[in-house]
Amino acid sequence: MMRFLSSICFSALLLACTESSTTVSMPSTAAANVQELPFEFVVDGLDRQRKVRLYLPTDYQTSEQSYPVIYMLDGQNLFDDATAYAGEWGVDETLNQMATTEGLKFIVVGIDNGGDKRMNEYSPWVNKRFGAAQGALFTTFIVDVVKPFIDNNYRTLDDVEHTAIIGSSMGGLLAHYALHAHPQIFGKAGIFSPSYWYSADVFTYSKDHKASLDAKIYVMYGDKEGDGMIVDTTYMQQQLREQGHPRQNMLFKRVLGGEHNEALWRSQFADAVRWLFSS
């Protein structure tokens, strides 16, 4: 087995990304069809509460259509510069445009990160430096608490084929885990700049808990994110191929000039969604 390379140099940035920029007052940039749910969800087993942000298609109130759902991590960074760490992803503006020009419409459920708890909540595996593994509990929270609420209160296509999870960095690690741990729930995963360096257990787990062969796996990273990122994602691609995951259901994309930041993830979001939900 190829030696697992740990890119610990990411850790300072990853820790910095846990805090949203709420100390500076600025106007919201979220579109009118984005809302914060008026209560926080309890994360069982962690004794924490979590805010959820919801994007509904612009025609939601006037149509009877049901929509695919994308669950996204780091909800603070998705829709609004006022809460984002280093610039929002522009998910709302991007999807509004895609709905108009391409007819692609989705519900997006943005689940906030836990600030200084983010590293632990987004990893299912213990890390000697960063401590406890809480990712399995957090994923169960999404599956058993958030998803049922969304499906019961909004017009969703709730089957596995129409349910995706997307995350970046540590969120990319958790999205990878969620696809393998809950193949009956998530049929698609957008894995942006994944922190495979955090634990070599991600490789072992992916062998022992294979994703559904129908699952679509989109892994994206920048060529300026460091040698560790390139080596780890390449190894994961090789491993999934050797496990028999169909090539047409995997896309590993290396972005020229891409760095480990919100700008890269924002620039690739539309392409990821198009590919994940293509026939």
Rank of each mutant, 00 (worst) to 15 (best):
G114P: 05
H260Q: 12
T22M: 01
F10K: 08
Q237A: 13
D81S: 13
Y122A: 04
M1I: 13
H209S: 11
Y218E: 02
R247C: 03
N249P: 07
E242M: 12
P148H: 03
S212L: 10
Y235M: 14
V91E: 11
Y55H: 00
P246W: 04
K188E: 04
A200C: 04
I107A: 14
I166P: 06
A16W: 10
Y205I: 07
R53F: 00
F106C: 07
Q61T: 08
D223C: 02
L173A: 10
L174E: 10
P124Q: 02
N153G: 01
F186P: 13
F192S: 08
C9T: 14
I111M: 14
T233C: 15
A211V: 09
R118E: 04
H162L: 05
L95W: 07
F39M: 03
A200D: 14
Y85D: 09
S195Q: 13
Q239S: 05
G135A: 09
V231L: 08
I111R: 07
A99I: 00
R247F: 04
V255A: 11
N77Y: 00
F41G: 09
F4K: 12
D74F: 01
P148R: 04
K216M: 05
T94N: 02
Y218W: 13
N261M: 08
T163P: 08
V231C: 05
M236I: 02
K117Y: 09
E242G: 02
K188F: 10
V231P: 01
A16M: 07
K224G: 06
S199K: 03
S195A: 15
G115E: 12
S11T: 07
W275A: 05
H162I: 02
H245P: 11
E259F: 14
S25F: 08
F149M: 00
M2Y: 13
I111Q: 05
R274T: 09
